[in-house]
Simulated assay, not measured.
Amino acid sequence: MDSSRLTDMLTLSHALSSIVAASLPNRCALCQQPLDRGAGLCDVCLDDGALGSVCLHCHRSLERVPPYRCGACLKRKRWRPVISAFHYHGPIGPCVAHIKTRTQPQLVPPLARHLAGQIDALHRQGILPWPEALVPVPTHRARLRQLGFNPAWLVARALATELELPLLDQLVIKSRPTQLQHQLDGQARRDNLRDAFGVIEQGEGQQVALVDDIITTGSTLKSVTRTLGRAGVRVTQYWTLASALNRR
């Protein structure tokens, strides 16, 4: 078979695949059940992967709430709420990881809506202060070119829309590339992030929520928080889709 005919057959095959895919109902990325609208994940899978009742700082499991912090965190004079919707080592965890590992940004909206609902409920109960704006954890331009998007920015944009909050996506940058954090432990994570971020816009006096897709140890979020703090921006809380804190 000559190459031109093979190319034509492949083109036709791709076209037919697209037509078939368009004719099929949208399905949940996990259980494959049809969805009434949109793409992503069904409510059953979202609820099944929820983080549940955990300390709002360290994410240790709690038998009941309130209180919303464990005994150790209740003793802290200073603490920062860490709000995550899903258990990273649960059924939703792979979906959060696939946003960047398999380039599936379409999973962000349903996950972010779930997190936004949790944030709104905590705020209405008087447990969570309301930030003035959202700041996504930045990624280096080399990584941005490689991936094509910043997952933290997609999450922050979705949350800003859901909760009607300003998005300060030009406030802080990642000024140098770093190793992937999940490849490192302890001190190596902190060393990896030293002087990796910089503030390029004025935001002094603002109180913001810092947004990322996943929190594992919190090293990245703390590093960005220190950078913003030196510029007079106060990070009052962390918001992430998934958490691996104390959940292994």
Rank of each mutant, 00 (worst) to 15 (best):
D2Q: 07
S4D: 14
L6A: 15
L6P: 02
D8P: 00
L10H: 12
L10F: 14
T11E: 14
L12D: 14
H14K: 15
L16I: 13
L16R: 14
S23R: 07
S23F: 03
P25W: 01
P25F: 01
A29M: 07
A29C: 08
Q33E: 11
Q33Y: 06
D36S: 14
A39H: 12
L41N: 11
L41F: 05
C45R: 03
L46D: 11
A50S: 15
L51C: 10
E63A: 12
E63H: 04
Y68E: 13
A72H: 10
C73Y: 04
C73V: 13
K75N: 12
K75V: 11
W79A: 12
R80K: 14
S84A: 14
S84M: 02
S84P: 09
A85E: 13
A85D: 08
F86W: 04
F86E: 11
F86M: 08
P91G: 02
P94A: 01
A97I: 14
H98L: 02
H98W: 06
I99S: 04
T101Y: 14
T103Y: 10
P105E: 00
Q106D: 13
P110S: 01
R113C: 03
G117C: 05
G117H: 05
A121S: 14
A121Q: 13
L122Q: 09
H123W: 07
G126W: 00
L128F: 06
L128Q: 12
P129Q: 09
V135S: 09
V137H: 05
T139A: 07
H140I: 07
R143G: 10
F149Q: 09
A152C: 05
L154Q: 14
L154K: 08
V155Y: 02
A158S: 15
T161P: 00
L165V: 13
P166C: 02
L168P: 02
L168R: 11
V172N: 05
V172E: 07
K174M: 01
R176D: 06
P177G: 02
Q179P: 01
Q179N: 06
L180V: 15
Q181I: 06
L184A: 12
Q187I: 12
A188C: 08
A188D: 11
R189C: 04
D191E: 14
A196T: 10
I200G: 03
E201C: 10
Q202M: 02
Q202V: 08
Q202I: 09
E204Y: 00
V208R: 05
A209I: 05
L210M: 08
V211F: 02
V211Q: 06
I214M: 04
I214A: 07
T216F: 00
G218T: 07
G218Y: 00
S219C: 09
S219H: 04
T220P: 06
R226P: 00
R226C: 03
R226N: 14
R226L: 07
R230F: 00
A231L: 05
G232K: 03
V233S: 04
V233L: 05
R234Y: 01
V235E: 03
Q237Y: 04
Q237T: 11
Y238E: 04
W239P: 11
T240L: 01
S243C: 04
L245M: 12
